[in-house]
Amino acid sequence: MGRKRRPTAAGAVVLQGQGEDAQVLVIHRPRYDDWSLPKGKLEPDEDAQVAAVREVEEETGLKVRLRVPLGRAEYIAKGAPKSVLWWVGTVVGGRIHPPVTTTKTNGKSNGKGKNGDVEVDRVEWWTPKQAAAKLSYTDDREMVERALATVPGHTVLLVRHAKAVQRKHWSGKDWKRPLSQRGRRQARRLAKLLEAYGVTQPITSSSTRCVQTLQPFAERTGLELVTMDELSEEVFEDDPGVSKRAMVDLLNQAHTQPGAPMAICGHRPLLPMMRGLLGLGDKPMLVGETLVVHHDDQGNQVAVERIPSAF
Score class of each variant (00 low, 15 high):
Arg3Lys: 12
Val13Cys: 03
Leu15Gln: 03
Glu20His: 13
Val24Tyr: 01
Val26Met: 02
His28Trp: 13
Pro30Phe: 06
Arg31Phe: 08
Asp33Ser: 13
Trp35His: 08
Gly40Glu: 05
Lys41Val: 15
Asp47Trp: 12
Val56Ser: 01
Val56Gln: 02
Glu57Trp: 11
Glu58Ser: 01
Lys63Ala: 08
Glu74Pro: 07
Ala77Phe: 15
Pro81Gly: 09
Trp86Phe: 06
Val88Cys: 10
Gly89Lys: 00
Val92Asp: 00
Val92Tyr: 02
Val100Leu: 10
Thr101Arg: 13
Thr102Leu: 05
Thr105Ser: 05
Ser109Thr: 15
Ser109Ile: 02
Gly111Val: 12
Lys112Gln: 06
Thr127Cys: 02
Lys129Val: 15
Ala131Ile: 12
Ala133Trp: 04
Tyr137His: 09
Glu145Gly: 14
Glu145Cys: 11
Ala147Val: 09
Leu158Glu: 01
Val159Leu: 04
Trp170Ser: 00
Ser171His: 14
Asp174Arg: 13
Asp174Tyr: 06
Trp175Asp: 00
Trp175Val: 10
Arg177Trp: 11
Arg177Val: 12
Gln181Arg: 10
Arg182Ala: 05
Arg184His: 11
Ala187Pro: 01
Glu195Gly: 05
Glu195Cys: 13
Val199Met: 03
Thr204Met: 08
Thr213Arg: 02
Leu214Tyr: 07
Arg220Tyr: 08
Arg220Asn: 04
Leu223Tyr: 11
Leu225Gln: 08
Val226Ile: 15
Ser232Glu: 05
Glu233Lys: 14
Glu237Arg: 14
Glu237Val: 04
Asp239Tyr: 06
Gly241Ala: 10
Val242Arg: 06
Val242Asp: 00
Asp249Trp: 11
Leu250Cys: 04
Leu251Met: 07
Gln253Glu: 09
Ala263Trp: 01
His267Ser: 02
Met274Leu: 14
Gly276Asn: 08
Leu280Ile: 12
Gly281Ile: 08
Val287Gly: 01
Asp297Trp: 15
Asp297Cys: 14
Asn300Pro: 07
Asn300Tyr: 09
Val304Arg: 06
Val304Tyr: 08
Ala310His: 09
